[in-house]
Design a protein around this nucleic acid. Sequence first.
DNA 1: GCCAACGTTGGC
DNA 2: GCCAACGTTGGC
Length: 136
Amino acid sequence: MNYWLIKSEPSVYSWDDLVKEKQTIWSGVRNYAARLHLRAMKKNDELFFYHSNEDVAIVGIAKVAKEAYSDPTSETDAWVAVDVKPVRKLKTSVSLSMVKTNKKLSGMALVRISRLSVQPVTAEEWNQVLTMAGEK
DNA sequence: GCCAACGTTGGC
DNA sequence: GCCAACGTTGGC
């Protein structure tokens, strides 16, 4: 099982929207690095759902409901989408500043490659964030 | 609203 | 193949 992090601006699509909708298509990714990660996702892999721009925090856990397929919002076959569904909201959301102050998370892609919208999370990082969220 | 970081495009 | 110019993302 692998772990990932996906970003969304809450004004465009928030965690609450995902919960309301029960499942959504993660489409519109037009970045090669992000596409690589989308393609590597397996069913039931877990994802941190991150709010960018406004909330600037990891707010919940989602999982892969359907592995990568051709993105219907693209006119070519070059891009892919996955389906994700909510698992649960974190007890306490973990803000970016909290992540930055945690030395164990200094290698996290969220800190190092801030513009990447779909990124891998190691098991260590995953557990560390869960601890900060009061889940452990 | 500003700006840094990064990706993409296009001229040479 | 290099690099300047430009556009976009995202934190503050």
